[in-house]
Design a protein around this nucleic acid. Structure first.
Lengths: 197, 197, 197, 197
DNA sequence: CATGAATGAGACTTCATTCAT
DNA sequence: TATGAATGAAGTCTCATTCAT
């Protein structure tokens, strides 16, 4: 496969993001994805074994990037607040860069979590665990107070961000860049202050 | 219809909660609900016009209770922190009382609000708006600081709770009562402290 | 059953005529008939064993009146043209009196003729046979010419009338009384003249 | 698609004619059509959007041929009687060629035009109108007498033919070719003579 | 790789009919 | 008689998936 040639597989995945975001995973047909990608119906099945696998691939691709971003944030900064700030920024930027993809991840993957294999749930927990580890270390260093368990803090932190994103996702109006930018610090302002000793 | 007589409509609704929670809305069949309720297939359609309407009814029933609880929490307490504490307690108790129902509402409705009618989105926003109003008043009273917008605070607050619930929902183990109880204050501890002046 | 009491059976039959005419036999529900009659759902099944039986009853009732009318026309008049004129007049008057009923008989019974028992087909043929007999006698008397078989003449005669009625039935506008009246003689004018020696 | 390849769409259409004729439109199932055609169930929906559309297609296909035949009859002959003779011949030959198709058109569409879309009614009226125009011209030329309106004559003419066909359709015995042949002139004999000056 | 016709299981929904009251 | 809740068979239509080309 040359780089010059259009990567049909990528084409299909990107189309799927738009279609899933627009119509929802269960409501769309495989043919909708093929149409959106401008490829033949059957080609989807050349690259993916099922409709589920497309959503799964999308999630796995993105979540791995996310895990890496969390790890990097942890490594790159010294202060817990900076680490969390970097994570929040990464998620908000992810939304800015591809709102559809984030919508699919938040809306469709959660719903599918029941049906999907345990792999996805484990991946998701990985992220929480990494964040919890950051909190735990901050507590050990005396920067964060002990009352709140790290696991709980991680959920609260991630939940706040996701809900703010959900607000944007279900908002009909386009969210201004400044609002996105401001949100990064607001989240950390709210949560970290609550966590700090 | 006497109260002694079995309310089949209620029977179906309750069965639907269990089935939706177990299999997911899209993955279950109407016949699964009928079987779970122990009634004939057609009876489901005697009481509801569609599978969608069942989910819709479930959500509306519960969300109205929630809106009332928020209003009551606002009225019953003076301190913002107490108000929010009461709201968090109500949501956690809702989960304790009927985890399946909360799972359905969170997984199938709240996060999938786009697929549903505009009515539901509006109802959901109502809740956020009420919480935001509590925050706004607290800010006006100088109890909460101004940096964080009330709307943002509401999303963060509700998001934290929902995520914690999601954690329990997707956890295979049964969550201990003490953990549920402790969570009520942890949420408020985390968020309110972040909000307080 | 006193005469003062409302005859529910009749109520249902009359309602069925309106409903069949409006929605079609296959498209309407038994409950539509009950609603139109203002009686309970189950009562329909107290008086009739099935939806089919209602249509069947309607047809049989009406067709017996028709057969009697043909017989009477045959007996009452001497000239073949007068006999046929009387028959045409009866059918047109039937339409004038209850267009819905005629619509049901023409539209729905024909369609159902396949499924319905042979009884109905036989009844219908009875009418043709009676008309054919009138023609045959006219031919024997030298009033009508022999080239056209009586059976054929009967079909052509009845077919003309039915088609004219169909024209009215599918016409959105209400047909004026004069047009109905004039048609009686036009039919006979057209057909009898073609038959006369 | 080469002509050598089997046209599945045609296969389905032809099977539908047989099934509709045998069981009636409302009484048959789509699976009956698929079975009769020897294709998979879903293929029916690959080519048609609904069961209705199949009947609709059948009617439209055939009725357009009919309209063309009427136009051609009008153009090809000079005498009104010849024109009408040609039309009657065409319809009778249509029956001879495919009795099932004519049965479907007469029983399921022509007499049930109200259930169908306005398109069909308009098409049907087109035919009547064309015949009426032939009559009108004959009247203007003094060949037909004025007493009978052209519209009425058209209905009577077409109705006679249709009823004769109906007679064959609901006759269990196979109609002999000579009878079909003889009918062509009998119809015209009967109707035209009634119309002629 | 690419196409899209072909397959068929399975879903939702309808509604005639029954039955307990 | 009268009611309408309850039953469940059956139908239409959808659509993920396969496969021949």
């Amino acid at each position: 496969m040359t780089t010059a040639a259009v990567d049909k597989r990528r084409l299909i995945l990107d189309a799927a993001v738009r279609v899933f975001a627009r119509q929802g995973f269960h409501t769309c047909r495989v043919s909708d994805i093929a149409d959106e990608a401008g490829v033949a119906y059957g080609l989807v099945y050349h690259y993916f074994t099922s409709k589920d696998e497309i959503l799964s691939t999308l999630f796995l691709e993105r979540w791995d990037v996310m895990l890496a971003a969390i790890a990097e944030a942890d490594a790159a900064y010294g202060e817990p607040r900076e680490k969390l700030q970097a994570i929040a920024a990464f998620i908000v930027d992810s939304y800015r860069h591809d709102p559809n993809l984030m919508k699919v991840i938040i809306v469709e993957v959660t719903r599918a979590a029941n049906t999907f294999g345990r792999t996805h749930l484990a991946k998701i927990r990985d992220a929480y665990a990494q964040i919890a580890k950051i909190v735990a270390r901050a507590q050990a260093d005396g920067v964060f107070r002990d009352e709140i368990t790290p696991e709980f803090a991680a959920l609260a932190f991630y939940g706040s961000i996701e809900q703010v994103l959900s607000g944007w996702i279900f908002d009909s109006r386009r969210v201004a860049d400044e609002e996105l930018e401001r949100s990064k610090s607001l989240i950390v302002e709210t949560i970290c202050r609550g966590l700090e000793a």
